[in-house]
Design a protein around this nucleic acid. Structure first.
Lengths: 141, 141
DNA sequence: CTCAATTGTAACTATAATAGTTACAGATGG
DNA sequence: CCATCTGTAACTATTATAGTTACAATTGAG
């Protein structure tokens, strides 16, 4: 179970909130669509709230809403909110500084890793939650 | 220890092989530069050999060599050889098919995930092992 | 005021990936 | 024959993930 599905669950969750913009949606309801436990949903919504992508309301009649319009939330915003680990990891232990490769490889790799990560995020930025909702509803026919 | 450093170790290893094109390099030597156990290196080199990026020679005087010129091995080749898990995971359990979002979200997400992964790999493809070796040696001054 | 419905969060568990380690069989060249 | 390597199995420790139970705190409705 090492493969991280938080990004998928976060987009799924936000798509549901975008679908019901006029009423708060409960973690229980989201969980029944995602097919998991409500606490898993609340944890992810908590991360999204830290980035102001959603707001929450406790108590009876409470639930979750989008923090801003679906047109103004990109997949990159979501990705950064729930998956802030770097995509690539450097050495677990420091490489040998007496070897020219060991001494300079990390700096070189960091630049290439940064570039690749930016390319990925630039692609994610081109899609908004509104796009995803439209695609899903189109699929629903 | 969940963060996967195989890509880093693989590039480091191949850079060493590119540095010594005229002699086989042993996993023991690579391990001393990477600062890890030789078996870890052999496992990664085994994956690289499956993609023909390196060749191996058993026995006395043996070791590892690049499978083709460093100019013709890109970081994308290396990435695919050692990290063939998809970058993004879909739901751990199938989403609820009775919900329009649950029914269609996976198809929509798959398209966006494919696009982002391609953007990442296109960026990695622009750098060769020869580039990395030059950068490392330039850093070495 | 009371109560049912929700969030918020801690605590625990099971599973899986990672990589570090030891051990040893097989191959190879001197 | 022997020292040197690869190739690989087996085991361990660590960590991330996410599923689950439990329960305090909040809140609106009646």
């Amino acid at each position: 179970m090492n493969t991280n599905s938080r990004f998928t669950v976060a987009i799924h969750t936000l798509t549901l909130l975008a679908m019901y913009p006029d009423e708060p949606v409960t973690s229980e309801y989201v969980a029944s669509s995602v097919n998991t436990n409500p606490v898993v949903i609340r944890r992810i919504l908590g991360a999204l709230r830290s980035e102001r992508l959603v707001t929450s309301q406790s108590g009876n009649g409470g639930g979750w809403r989008l923090g801003r319009e679906a047109e103004k939330i990109t997949l990159r915003d979501v990705y950064r909110a729930v998956d802030n680990e770097p995509l690539f990891s450097l050495h677990n232990r420091p490489p040998n500084p007496n070897c020219p490769v060991g001494r300079h490889i990390q700096h070189t790799l960091t630049e290439h890793f940064t570039s690749a990560t930016r390319a990925l995020e630039d692609d994610l930025e081109r899609t908004t939650l509104a796009d995803v909702l439209h695609e899903v509803l189109a699929g629903a026919g």
